[in-house]
Simulated scan of single mutants.
Amino acid sequence: MIERKQLKDGAQVTFVLPADVPPGPVSVVGDFNQWKPGAHTLEPRSDGTRAVTVRLPAKSVHAFRYLAAGDYWFDEHHADGHDGANSLLHT
């Protein structure tokens, strides 16, 4: 799931997954962090989910995927679109 908050000069985007699906550490990896695994690792929240928040510029499109333990890459089904290889997010 993706939570968004519009800001005056951009957007605050929170990537949210269940606490244990998939198991182990998960990070969101995309063009906004130079596709660097571990740069934005999802952390547990009190509501039983895990999440990470990223600030992005306004009126931009970003490609991203999730990376879980065991080199397991997967897409966000609630993304704004998909380009064949990645999930897409519009701010």
Rank of each mutant, 00 (worst) to 15 (best):
E3M: 09
R4Y: 03
R4M: 03
K5E: 15
Q6S: 13
A11F: 05
A11Q: 10
V13C: 07
V13T: 04
T14Q: 11
V16S: 03
L17G: 02
D20G: 12
D20N: 15
D20A: 13
P23Y: 05
G24C: 05
P25R: 14
V26T: 03
S27N: 08
G30W: 00
D31W: 02
D31N: 15
F32W: 05
W35Y: 14
W35Q: 10
P37I: 08
G38V: 09
A39K: 08
H40M: 08
T41D: 05
T41C: 04
T41W: 04
E43P: 00
P44A: 12
R45T: 15
S46K: 14
S46V: 09
D47E: 06
G48H: 07
G48E: 07
R50K: 13
A51V: 10
V54W: 01
V54H: 02
R55F: 07
L56Y: 03
P57R: 12
P57Q: 15
A58F: 02
K59G: 14
S60T: 13
S60H: 09
V61G: 05
H62E: 02
H62M: 07
A63K: 14
R65K: 15
R65A: 13
R65I: 11
Y66P: 01
Y66R: 10
L67N: 04
A69D: 10
G70K: 06
W73D: 12
F74E: 07
D75K: 13
E76K: 03
H77F: 12
H77A: 15
D80A: 11
D80S: 06
H82V: 09
H82Q: 13
D83P: 01
N86H: 15
L88M: 12
